[in-house]
Amino acid sequence: MREASPEISRLRSAAAENAVPLHAQIELTHRCNLRCRHCYLHDSHDARGEELTLSELTGIFAQLAEMQTLFLAFTGGEIFLRPDAVDIIRAARRLGFACVLLTNGTLIDDRLAGRIADLQPLQVHVSLLGLEQAHDAMTMQPGSFRQTLAAMQALRSRGVKVVAKLVVTREAIADAEALRRLAAEQADETVFSTTLIPTLAGDNVGEELHVRPEELCRLSFDCKIPEFSNPGWPPEATVCNAGRGLLAVSPYGEVFPCIGFRMQLGNARETALEEIWRGEKLRQLRLLRRGDLPDCAGCDRQEYCTFCPGVAWSVAGDYRRAVPELCQKAERLRKFLDLKRGGGR
């Protein structure tokens, strides 16, 4: 994977420093035709109320455009379960947004692929959870792997950039090498991850699904884990982009700092987004620095820790706390890197 260009990095940093929501995540629905076992919505696929309509979403897009948002990520649930998904994305494109679509691909036939291509999305992201057997076992939907691959081909044949996210759990780790080769052929970009986040209800997604460091070490390709993203732990460093350069809107209009950080800031149906964005909760969050995390001072795993305030929030109800999910992740990473450095395989 390439490094972000200096220009986009500069733009992102400038946006975050000036509290400009350059990126927004729009959850179009929580409904899904699959039941992926690792999904953070695994326990929340039922509709909780009326989803934002096309006209409500168009109003939200206009507000985001005023707030200088350029990138919109449409996610679900499965976005194409909404019959008006294409109209929604078209409304966003008309307002100049660069749109990234996150989909499982299973509903994309040739016709829909053509309509998606006409929208000129920046990228379409699909998740592959293993080779056929493991993938279908994770989605709990026989045939889903083949449908997803067919969608990738239909999109790419029309010039759409497809990013394959290889989300690998312990059950699919044996497929990792072959899956990576397949993705190299079938996608324009590949992202490999073993990170699983807790569900909306705050439950850790089955410890048994997490890949063990020893297993990761056995992979022949180079897993350059976070030396890349974690330049130490300076106390004055900010924690992440959530609520600084990023905001999220749920299918019901709830506004969050990030889809992985469900601290409700307000509802776009009732309050102008700008007002929510300038509100006290986010003002406080923007002041947060690594040195303010009360449990983390002196921790010897800091250099391995990609602290996520969203996980802390969903598990402990306080985004500053070190919760076991975060510490375990840091520990797995430390062990992985120790093994790697020691040549352990």
Binding site: M1, R2, E3, A4, S5, I8, R12, H23, A24, Q25, Y40, F71, A73, T75, A98, V100, L102, L122, Q123, H125, V163, K165, R180, E189, T190, V191, F192, S193, T194, T195, I197, F221, C223, K224, I225, P226, F228, S229, C240, N241, A242, G245, L246, C258, I259, G260, F261, T306, C308, G310
Partner: peptide, 18 residues
């Protein structure tokens, strides 16, 4: 390289190992 944006606009911070 908008692919890198998945770190913030995908499912939050998507660790890119590759």
């Amino acid at each position: 390289e908008p692919d890198q944006m998945c770190q913030t606009i995908g499912v939050g911070c998507f660790d890119a190992y590759d």
